[in-house]
């Protein structure tokens, strides 16, 4: 996929003395769904708002193909945006809300009403077109906001945590709906969320942000399996942190010598990062590393939580069938079923 549709280069933004965005660069391909993921205050929403034109950057450029948008005001950027909540105009009906973008583009009344109904049909709300926003549920309102953002066929769809105010079930349904619509319409989409499950489940690529910088941008698979640094490893998915001893390019942990992925730490005592699915358990009475303290049944898999002799907690993800024998109190030996690990100074 050629990643040259949206090109953001070296964006920086300060609010007073607070650096919200620090030399942020990103390229998005046409038709791609890229998610910016990160903790609160990492700059992901600022990045999105700069792309939308709702904030003015201190430095950097924004290009859409060859068109320089850097100084173009928001209302001339032709980007659809869905906000966290409460962005529907309360004085307009659902259909009028959806047709608003077309009205601003001077599309004639009959054409815009037809388009509004088409879009409402796509999000399953055509029957609600004559209602007012306050008569809809939160999930329905966000669906209307999505239809409104798509109605004028924007060049880019921007989603600013559109699911964060919804309950779990609605959230999950709407998440799938967003992806379905995005794929069927082929709309290039930039999505901002702090929810990694949301990000990993619907994105072509996920960019993880921290302190105003883009730490890593990759496919969800690569991000999870090949985090570039300790922050990503800790932020994306569940990660065990256990003590090990590093010597050169290998680290010794639970009696095994594993290769070290990163080269930035000195030899000696280090923290080793291991995903729960790479932690295997074996019941033993002698030579045990840990004691099982609980087992969480999650359906086809279960999470077995163990406590090492030094008090460290280690999570192991096993098939529920295999995990049945690890009842609380059982003493276990731990094996790491991974060749390469990330380490940091402990």
């Amino acid at each position: 996929m050629s990643q040259n549709y949206l090109k953001v280069k070296g964006l920086s933004k300060k609010f007073g003395n607070v650096v919200a965005l620090n030399n942020f660069s990103l390229e998005v391909a046409r038709g791609e769904l890229v998610t910016l993921l990160g903790p609160s205050g990492c700059g992901k929403t600022t990045a999105l708002r700069l792309v939308a034109g709702l904030e003015r950057q201190d430095s950097g450029t924004i290009f859409l193909e060859s068109r320089d948008l850097t100084l173009i005001p928001a209302h001339h950027r032709n980007m659809g945006m869905v906000f966290q909540a409460y962005s529907l105009f309360p004085n307009l009906t659902v259909a009028e809300n959806v047709a608003f973008g077309l009205q601003m583009r001077k599309v004639d009344r009959s054409a815009r009403i037809k388009k509004a109904h088409e879009l409402l049909d796509l999000v399953g709300l055509d029957s609600q077109s004559a209602r007012f926003p306050h008569q809809l549920s939160g999930g329905q309102q966000q669906r209307v906001a999505l239809a409104r953002a798509l109605a004028f066929e924007p060049e880019i769809l921007l989603l600013d945590e559109p699911l964060s105010a919804l309950d779990a079930q609605v959230r999950s349904n709407l998440r799938e709906e967003i992806r379905r619509l995005q794929l069927s319409l082929g709309t290039t989409t930039l999505f901002v969320t702090h929810d990694q499950e949301e990000a990993m489940s619907i994105s072509d690529r996920v960019g993880v942000m921290n302190e105003g910088r883009l730490e890593q941008i990759d496919t969800p698979d690569d991000l999870y399996n090949h985090p570039k640094n300790v922050f990503i490893a800790n932020f994306v998915g569940l990660m065990n942190q256990v003590s090990g001893t590093k010597t050169g390019k290998s680290v010794s942990v639970f009696g095994a010598n594993l290769k070290v992925k990163n080269e930035v730490v000195t030899d000696g005592r280090v923290l080793v990062y291991i995903r729960p699915e790479f932690v295997e358990l074996e019941c033993t009475e002698s030579d045990a590393d840990a004691k099982v303290i609980s087992r969480l049944f999650l359906g086809s898999v279960s999470q077995v939580i163990c406590q090492l002799n030094d008090g460290t907690i280690v999570h192991s993800l096993l098939s529920s069938r295999m995990s049945a024998e690890f009842a609380p109190g059982i003493r276990v030996k731990i094996r790491v079923n991974e060749d390469e690990v990330l380490v940091s100074n402990g």
Partner: peptide
């Protein structure tokens, strides 16, 4: 008056005067 309404209107292609005409003033 919510900031989101002004921003959403702007994002949908409304200039400041159109926002006031269609959203702000009627509210």
């Amino acid at each position: 008056l919510r900031k989101e309404w002004r921003e959403a209107a702007s994002n949908l292609g409304a200039s400041r005067s159109k926002y006031w005409r269609h959203v702000g003033l009627p509210i």
